Structure formats: C-alpha cells, structure tokens
Amino acid sequence: MSRARIRLASAVLLSALAIGTVPAHASAGRQAPAASGSASVSASASDRADGRQNHRRYGAETIRQIPLQGAVNLRDLGGYSTYTGGRVRQGLVYRSDALGKLTEADITTVSGLGLTKVVDFRIPMEVQYDGADRLPSGLTPTSRAVSDLGLYGTLVAAISSGDPVKQEQMLGGGRAEAYMRDIYRTFVTSPENRAQFAATLRDIAAGGQGPLLYHCTSGKDRTGWMSYVLLRALGVPEGSAARDYLASNTYRGAYDAKVREGLKLSGRMQNPDLLIPLQEVRQDYLDAATAQLAADYGSFYGYLTQGLGLDLRVLADLQKKLVR
C-alpha cells in the first residue's frame, strides 16, 4: 500500500477519535453496552425497546436512543424532569454522532423524526475524511464548526506514524486527558465556539423552527456540552444533565473497544488504550468546562446571558417551547 493510501486509511479510521470516534458503520451491534472501566452511569435492568426508540433508565431518568445501523449515539433529548415540576418535551431536539454512514433504512428512520434542521459541529477535516451527512431528501446540514484545538490533526500524526514511542510521548502520561480538559475549557473561553453554541440555542428557541438535530463525530464532547447547556437552561437539575452527558460511554463503549482492537491488529498501535481518554466522556472533562464557566461568568446564568449573549426572551422561548 502506498504511503498516501496508508495516511488516508489512518485518517479515515481517526474520523471518530477526535472529539468523536471512528465511523459508526463499523459497529455491528448498535445498542452498545458500557465499556469496562469507563466513566459511564449504570443502566438498570429495565432497558427495553419501544417502537423506534430504545429506552434506557438511569436512576429516575429515561434516555431515549433511536437505534440505527450507521450511528450509535442518536438520542431524543426529551423526557427529563425540571426543577419546576415540568418535563422536557420529546420529539423536538435530538443529539447524535456523525450521520455520514447512515444506511437507506437509517435514512427512513431519521425521516420519521420530522427534522427541519441539522447542525454539524465538526471541523472541515472531519467532514473530509468521515464524509458529509447522509440525510432525508430536503435536508442540508448547517455547518457550525467548533474547534478541537488541533486534536484531530494530532491523532492523525500519532496513529499514522505507527511509532509506539511517539504515540506514548504524544498521548501518554496524562497528556490525552489534559488535552481533553483544555478542549472543554475552550467551549467556554473561545468566542467562536460560544457563537456556534449560541446560534444553535437560538435556532431551537425559534417559534417557527421544527425538530432540530445537532451532532459532531461521536456525539459526545461538543454535542455533549451543547446538550448539557440546553438541559440546564431548561431547568433540568445539574445531576440529570451530567448523566445525559456521561451516557455516551454506554452507547459508544463496545464500538470504541472494537476500534482499539482494530488498531492493534492492524499494527498501527501497540497500546491503543492510549486512546481511551479521547474516546470516553468523563466527569473530569465536564468539570473543567463548568469551572471555567464559573471563573469567567460567575454562574451558569452568567454564561448564558453574558457568554452566549442570550437575552431573557430567548431563554423564555426555550422554556415555553420545550418544557410542558
């Protein structure tokens, strides 16, 4: 195989590792169990399939996954209880991993969601190697790239090198975890990132806007932060919003383990466990963002109004539209 083809193959494999993980079509099982040792919340024995959704209970919450063949982390963000005794409406906001590998059957399923807008948080390099979204007729994704601080390029360099010493130097010794915390802080500190999240919240709040889906590559970091912010803005308790964030480990765990196994079998990585901090979501990463939020804006409300520039009308429209 030529060097160019090796680089391309490595980059394609990586399209799910940077702020999201390898193309979801390689996962055969869909409803992935939690990975051993991951920072996921525990699911109860009451998991069940119900029509087009798989319902999985986390304590008092029910998380509603839409099973697909070409994506593993598509979920309805509705169903959560709020401080005021309300409940987030279902069928209006969806969060997902990349949609570039959807099958025809998947597209039919997604069409049934009635989406009127899809927002893509991926950077251009991810779209180039992982593929543009495959969507129902009439839908075109809106690109709102959120920075990964160069993580995707770093991973391409590390894995395509095939050098275990270089890979350890780049990702080992806590460096991968530190990189992730830095990325989460930029969700708060970067004006460009804040503008992308704010624009999406305004879209969701808009009266004429129908069901909306947003996603990144794995649907866990950029998408996870967006979901955490939206749920808290709706008055969902912090603990519930954090459990929704951590649930990506449950849905992605088995698939991500297969990715690591494939990298080892291919000879690209002697120690693919170096990637685990990049594949998982962790409370520590979320805490880095919320600590930055408190430092910069004093409170979550300050972040919404000063950091994201949302006025009281937008916040009220979110409540009116999404909470019953």
Rank of each mutant, 00 (worst) to 15 (best):
G302L: 11
L115V: 09
A233E: 03
G219V: 06
S96L: 04
D317T: 04
V156R: 09
R222L: 10
D97N: 13
T140S: 15
V236N: 01
L201D: 05
P237A: 10
V229R: 04
V165L: 09
R30T: 11
D317C: 08
G91H: 13
S266K: 00
E104N: 14
L304G: 03
S147G: 11
A233H: 07
T189N: 07
L230T: 02
Q167E: 08
N271W: 00
G59Y: 10
G262Y: 03
E280R: 08
L135C: 09
V146R: 01
V12L: 10
E168I: 00
Y245R: 08
R252D: 06
T305L: 02
D296S: 15
A257D: 14
R185D: 09
A241M: 05
A241K: 01
T103Y: 04
V165I: 14
T142W: 09
G70S: 03
A11F: 07
G86I: 10
Y80K: 02
A157D: 15
S111T: 13
L318W: 05
R260H: 02
A158M: 02
T217Y: 01
R3K: 10
L293S: 07
S2D: 15
A45W: 12
D287R: 15
L115K: 11
R181N: 11
T21G: 14
V110E: 05
A98F: 09
L231C: 07
